[in-house]
Design a protein around this nucleic acid. Structure first.
Lengths: 232, 232
DNA sequence: GGAACATTAATACAAACGTATGACTTATTT
DNA sequence: AAATAAGTCATACGTTTGTATTAATGTTCC
């Protein structure tokens, strides 16, 4: 029933079918969304048989999750790596806000230039993940968010937690929507000076984060990220 | 074949079936998206027959468009009204950036409190509209964007067009994603001090828009809004 | 009151969906 | 070389999809 139930030394065999399926899934799920891309469509684009998908992944959901995590994990790891590297260079001193934001954003830009389809998929899923993905994303993203929040709090000691949380979410929104648009530009081969755009985005978000504190004490509930859409 | 081909003085009759269908569509399309909500689901929630949808709207696409435009139009009109009102009060002097941003954002907050389902629908469609909606949105949004861009340019005369355009887009992104999350909070009856959040968002976006100009001349292509997803 | 129309209702249809199955071919192992 | 496993393939099943069709029921006006 399942591909490697016993023995199976190192998944040596395919390396083609399975990966071609993943690539096709990344591409088509990114463009059409989870509901918009059917298994037959994927199989055709990948040039494999319809049954191959069920064989290698078990179900559409599982394929979707795997497609998403494949790059999401390395992107998050890269984010942490950059931040740690910066903090080592700073030798104990709190990092400037812009630097922290840069560490957060840069991997997304880099990944977007190499894998625009994934960037579409990513934006889709951070915005409105299908229900079965929601927990996965949260679990994968949570440690990341914690670390960056902590770094920002060190850089902005006067800012209340809840306010920073809200502002971070605004920044995420700007980043998210923009990355979606950028992916389509990359897709259409509209080469642009993305380094400039990245700098500009860092400036925008940093300015927002550092803007003056509100006169009245802020009062609101925490907004979860990402929100779960299909829940109702 | 069609409901009011001739005579048909004033569409007097229903006022129930048709509107119940629109309400159900707003609710379910908002939550599940275009692909996620089927005609039978809508009919059941509205408490009407399946055929009624085809009869009153012709097709699923048409129903979707009408559901979207019903509130989108009045929201945009309200935006323009607020801006014009502010400009009259200013008597020729350029408005402060924060004021312009407020006029842009406030109607969305108000609408979100009254019609959270529509807010979900709106965020969905501004982010990744189904292909058949793309042109509609663009046409409806274009004059609005022009007016606000002009007002911002008057407030920020030193800023190059392309930079303002990019920063505006960042702001849109923050607004968009947040409105999606807010809608779900409203849904779950988590009453919060939304006026505070609104102020905070105005502050964030205004700070981003007014942040220092880049040292090097910016160079990039214009990013379209909204981007068309399904196009590839 | 009956003709003309507007609306609702029940049912049918072809297409697309995700998944399951069993036969066939290729690899790997002993 | 035989045997076992891994992978590929064509095909089929049961749902669900959006829409079309046709009959039944209200409603309106002369």
């Amino acid at each position: 029933m399942f591909p490697m139930e016993k023995s199976a030394p190192k998944v040596p065999s395919d390396r083609t079918t399975r990966d071609r399926l993943l690539d096709a899934a990344e591409h088509l799920f990114g463009i059409h969304g989870y509901k918009g891309a059917g298994m037959r469509m994927l199989a055709e684009e990948a040039g494999v048989n319809l049954g191959a998908a069920t064989y290698h992944f078990g179900s559409k959901d599982a394929l979707y999750i795997e497609t998403f995590l494949r790059r999401f994990r390395v992107m998050n790891a890269e984010r942490l790596r950059l931040l740690r590297e910066s903090e080592e260079q700073a030798e104990g001193k709190p990092l400037p806000v812009a630097r922290i934001v840069d560490c957060m954003i840069r991997p997304l830009f880099q990944s977007g230039l190499k894998h625009p389809s994934f960037q579409l998929l990513l934006a889709r899923n951070l915005f409105m993940p299908p229900p079965f993905l929601h927990a996965v994303i949260r679990q994968e993203l949570e440690p990341n968010i914690k670390v960056f929040q902590a770094a920002l709090l060190r850089a902005l000691p006067a800012m209340p937690d809840s306010l920073l949380h809200l502002r971070t979410m605004f920044g995420m929104g700007a980043l998210l929507v923009f990355s979606f648009q950028m992916a389509q530009m990359v897709f259409e081969r509209h080469a642009t000076f993305y380094e400039n755009v990245l700098e500009e985005m860092v400036r925008f978000i940093s300015a927002g984060l550092q803007s003056e504190l509100p006169p009245s004490p802020e009062q609101w509930l925490p907004f979860p990220f990402p929100p779960d859409s299909e829940s109702r």
